[in-house]
Amino acid sequence: MLKIENYSMAYIKGKPVVSDLNLEVQEGDIFAFIGHNGAGKTTTIKSIAGVNYFEEGNILLDGISIKQDPIAFKKNIAYIPDNPDLYEYLTGIQYLNFIADIYEVSQADRQGAIKKYATAFDLIVNLNDLIASYSHGMKQKLAIISALIHDPKLYILDEPFVGLDPYAAHNLKEIMREKCQAGKIIFFSTHVLDTAEKLCNKIAIIKKGKLIVAGDMKKILKNNSLEETFLELVEHD
């Protein structure tokens, strides 16, 4: 279980970007994190991934705190940023091998995972090319494959569908469902509300760093669409 406890984050002292956020995400959940630009989504996501430092609150995965034991925490996560700047001097396969080496993935496991996901994302013929020659979408696909390679417990994805072609976006959604059925946790931010509505079972809406609503998608939406609910909640809050 992913637990965010009283998390607050400020880049400038006294001006919090996120205030007192509390969330719980269970195994098997696909959790959409929604909000305006600048609402604090990426800041929160970066803190969960260990990229951002924060002083107040705690983030735990199965009881392991990112603050107290960051290495153990990070062993069980995969993070895909919204704009993946990858090592352009490596080839695609070198990058995947690097990530697999860091997570100590066995030869057989990485062989299987690379073949499966590189085929799914139509990247197999480009794996021997330098990342510098990749388009934005190809980099995004490579970052996704690298996140899947070690089969972590928690997937943290920041705007994962941006830059993906329809075929790759469809495959990613399928993979997310598959992982969720296997008891993994998927926590992602998106502005594509339609996708979030169809894909996720849980949702949280954040506005100006404060959580407006969180919980079961069906209960929150009632009979409305996510777009209607989002606009209503954001406007009236």
Partner: peptide, 14 residues
């Protein structure tokens, strides 16, 4: 950048 036409790749754990 040079495009590599080979589709086979090496997977060597380190």
């Amino acid at each position: 950048e040079h495009k590599n036409l080979k589709t086979n790749y090496k997977v060597n754990p380190k």
